[in-house]
Amino acid sequence: MAQIIVVTSGKGGVGKTTSSAAIATGLALQGHKTVVIDFDIGLRNLDLIMGCERRVVYDFVNVINGEANLNQALIKDKRCEKLFVLPASQTRDKDALTKEGVGRVLDDLAKEFDYILCDSPAGIEQGAMMALYFADIAIVTTNPEVSSVRDSDRILGMLQSKSRRAEQNLEPIKEYLLLTRYSPTRVKSGEMLSVEDVSEILAIPLLGVIPESQSVLKASNSGVPVIIDQESDAGLAYSDTVARLLGEDLPVRFITEEKKGFLQRIFGS
């Protein structure tokens, strides 16, 4: 039975698409057949992050409207054969996403895939609602600052009231916290909320903490999911996150300030 995972946040710019790309790639690298769907109709980004924007012919909306079949629209990843991308349409808007249409496409995908990742747009409108409606698992992406935490809390309320599982009184969506752009130095100086602060306010299990890292921007610009970069803290943190999603119990890394070495202290970093 395929698991439908929504990567959501409420607030924009917190790292939903980066996380979707990284986690989808991570799941596929672990041998699970995975598809990642861009729900941000009109603001197509996932294909850029995944490095497949030149291969988009048909998109999600085409499939919903029956203008193309799934196999025509799915883009197979070049790096990992178990990974597929279903891109968004750049020329439509979110109203193209209907509950029936999205449900039908997800049903079809569920026959072939182990994991279906839904990369939600920001906000709480149609696009975001459709991305979370069918979810079994929600990864709530949050930055360690108050407005992001507030918006995540709002989205958690939506997950509990507006999703299919809530409406049909099924077992609730499993909610996980993914804390991104975490900077231990700024937490220590009081500029950022700590892992404990955010966990206490949102009161959901912590799936991972992704440190603020130059490598994320570099990876996005070059169209390579950051999880591929196993040299970087962010890449390793995403690998840990995927492992926890698959049931492993790992300690959280990169949440304390790195101690500077003797030479670094003298010459600066």
């Binding site: 709480i124 507030r150 918006d151 809390d153 709002r154 958690l156 309320g157 509990q160 009161a203």
Partner: peptide
């Protein structure tokens, strides 16, 4: 028996 979230 649950948390009341922002907006609820």
């Amino acid at each position: 028996k649950q948390n009341i979230r922002s907006g609820q």
